[in-house]
Amino acid sequence: MSSQGPKQVLFAQFAAVAKTLGHAHRLELLEQLAQGERSVEVLAQKTGLSIANASQHLQHMRRAGLVASRRDGKFVYYQLADDSVLDVLAALRVVAERNMAEVEQVVRSYFNERDALEAVSREELLQRSRAGAVTVLDVRPEDEFVLGHLPGAVNIPLRALEKRLSELDPANEIVAYCRGPYCVLSYEAVAALRARGFKARRLEDGLPEWRAAGLPVISGSA
C-alpha cells in the first residue's frame, strides 16, 4: 500500500488553496475584505451576490485559510486571514499581466486609456502629504473610508465627485486612491479631474497595500 510523501501532501494542500481561489466572485470578496472586516450581509450587497451565495464562498475560503470569521449575535463577520493573502493576489495579477494576452488588452484598452501616466508611489505620497504638498483623495464609498484610510485623506466617493469639486483646491496636485491597483474608481476619478483642469494622479495601488507596507492608517469618519 503506497503512501504519499511529505512533498506530495504539501502540494495537495497548496493545490486546494489554489482551487479555492479559482472563482471570480471569491476574488471580488477578497478585494472587499482587504478594505476591512465585513458582515456576510454587507459583502453580499457590495458584490451583488445573494447572502446564501456569498456565505458559501466565504466558508470555502475560511476552510482554505484565506479568511477568518467571528460571530456577533445573529451576524457573522469575515476578515482576511493575514496580509499574505494580498501577496497571493498580487502574484496572480503579475502572472496574468505578463502572460495572458486578454489581461494585457484590458489593461491597455481600459486602464491605460484613462491614465497612462506613471502612478505615485507610496513613499512619494507619504513624503509629499506630510509636507502638505498634495491633496490625498479617497474615492471609495463612505463606509469603506470609515474602516480605514490614509492620514489626511479627503473622502469624496466617485459618485459624488462632480457635485463636490468646489471642495478641492485646483492649485494643489490631487492623488486619488481606492481599493487596489485596478480599482476603477481611482482611474475614473483621475480622468474626470483632469478633464476639469485639475492636476491629478493615482496612487500606485490602494489602501490594503498601504496598510500591509506598515504605513499609517486612520479609522473613523473625517
Rank of each mutant, 00 (worst) to 15 (best):
C183L: 06
R71A: 14
Y77C: 03
V95A: 15
P151N: 08
A96D: 11
R164T: 06
L10I: 05
T47A: 12
R63I: 05
E188W: 06
E173P: 11
R211F: 01
Y77P: 01
T47Q: 05
V136R: 05
D143R: 03
N172Y: 14
A12W: 05
L21W: 02
A160L: 13
Q13K: 13
V190E: 00
C183V: 05
V94N: 10
Q13C: 04
R70D: 03
R62A: 15
A44M: 06
G5F: 02
A171M: 09
A222N: 13
P216M: 00
D83K: 15
P151W: 09
A15I: 07
E124N: 10
L21T: 00
V106H: 07
Q105N: 08
E118D: 13
A116R: 08
V146Q: 06
Q4M: 14
A34F: 04
T135E: 13
A24P: 06
I174A: 00
K46G: 06
Q79W: 07
D115C: 08
T135I: 11
A24C: 02
K74C: 10
V9A: 09
D82S: 07
A34T: 07
H23G: 01
R71S: 12
S109T: 14
D87S: 14
A15R: 14
R211Y: 05
G148T: 00
L150H: 09
S39P: 01
L10A: 12
E142V: 14
H25E: 15
E142Q: 08
A195E: 15
A44F: 08
D115G: 05
E162L: 09
V184F: 13
E144I: 10
Y110C: 12
K7P: 00
Q35K: 13
S186I: 04
V175H: 00
S166C: 10
S3D: 15
S50I: 02
R62E: 12
F14S: 11
A189K: 03
E209H: 13
R62F: 04
R194K: 08
V40T: 14
H25V: 11
L193F: 07
L168T: 10
R114D: 00
A18P: 06
A16I: 00
R128L: 10
A52W: 05
A91P: 01
N53D: 14
Q56E: 15
K74R: 15
V67R: 05
A12I: 08
L150R: 07
E104T: 11
P181W: 11
V217A: 02
L49E: 09
G206P: 00
A101G: 02
L33W: 01
A68I: 11
I174C: 01
P170A: 14
Q32F: 03
D143E: 08
A116G: 03
L147T: 03
K7A: 12
R71N: 09
Q127P: 06
L185Q: 09
G180L: 00
V154E: 04
L158M: 12
L80S: 04
R114F: 07
G73T: 07
A18N: 09
G197D: 11
H60L: 11
N112M: 13
A160K: 11
Q56G: 12
E173N: 08
W210A: 05
Q13T: 12
K46Q: 15
N172F: 13
Y177E: 05
R62G: 12
I156E: 03
V42L: 12
H25I: 03
K199H: 14
A116D: 03
A171D: 15
